[in-house]
Amino acid sequence: MSAEIILEVKNLVKHYPLTSRGIFLKKEVGVVHAVDNVSFSVRKGETFGLVGESGCGKTSTARAILYLDPPTSGEIYFEGQEIGRIFKSKNHQDLLKLRRKMQYVFQNPYASLDPRMTVADIIMEPFVIHKHVPKEKWHNRLYELLELVGLEEYHAERYPHEFSGGQRQRICIARALAVEPKLLIADEPVASLDVSVRAQILNLLQELQQKFGITYLYISHDLSTVRHICHRVAVMYLGKFVEIAETSELFNSPLHPYTQALLSAIPVPDPENKRSRIVLPGEVPSPINPPKGCRFHPRCIYAKKHNCVENVPELVDVGKGHWVACNKVKR
């Protein structure tokens, strides 16, 4: 694995304003702190996992990176280029070039394919937009892509509603691959699929990574699939990173109390399992008024001892590329 960095995110902040409607103008009545000051870097060719429960800001992070929802502040570097500048300059050619390098696979394959287009139209749309494939080779390339994701030629003229969830996700992957991207952001790509189909899609993603060296940013709430596919994992809680580590390191010796609880909360498919489960009290607080200090402190058993109500923990390196943001953990 090369240590070359393909994507670097620095102090990313994404706030969504809560507005009330006036006649012409909107009034801001509050702010949802979706992502608060997040920094990380993704190495070329690796799968970087972003894990957390619903509302923790993992999807907002991904959308900000792709400028689907421009970030409130912070910088995003892709291959050393600050991409915010490209988006703000409105230079159409530069923008297209950037779009070709980063692609997105959505969570819900039922909503992410245009129901009025055939599979061929869907997969060839990138060719129309980017013109990177000569027109006479469009169909060859289409069949190559279909084969690559495990579909047949005769599927090309069909419509999305004729496919199962797993096959639709394959179509989405083929569309993303059509521009030959360097980074693929996969937002819960298997969450809406059946258990028996999940492994197919995950293996397909792994196989494609081996073939083309694509870097993945893999977003999920499901730690099982994360363990299976990711090289490094970051755990998010209420808009902040609480822990980043190599996958095996994170699963074998989680340091943050939230990561520990998250890992133990997963039901084990073993009736005789006697592993004690840490059941967290309460629920994730609202991101409109996140708790002061450590955002996890209202649910944490160590909070009193370390005065986490006031001390905001910073991400610190504890060795072996393992970073934790917890007052309990000291270097």
């Binding site: 792709l66 297209l96 692609q103 997105y104 819900n108 937009i129």
Partner: peptide, 17 residues
């Protein structure tokens, strides 16, 4: 609201397209 519109944005499709 549909994700296929966002997918088109991510692909670089223009507003008119």
């Amino acid at each position: 609201q549909n994700e296929y519109i966002e997918a088109a944005v991510a692909l670089g499709a223009s507003k008119w397209r």
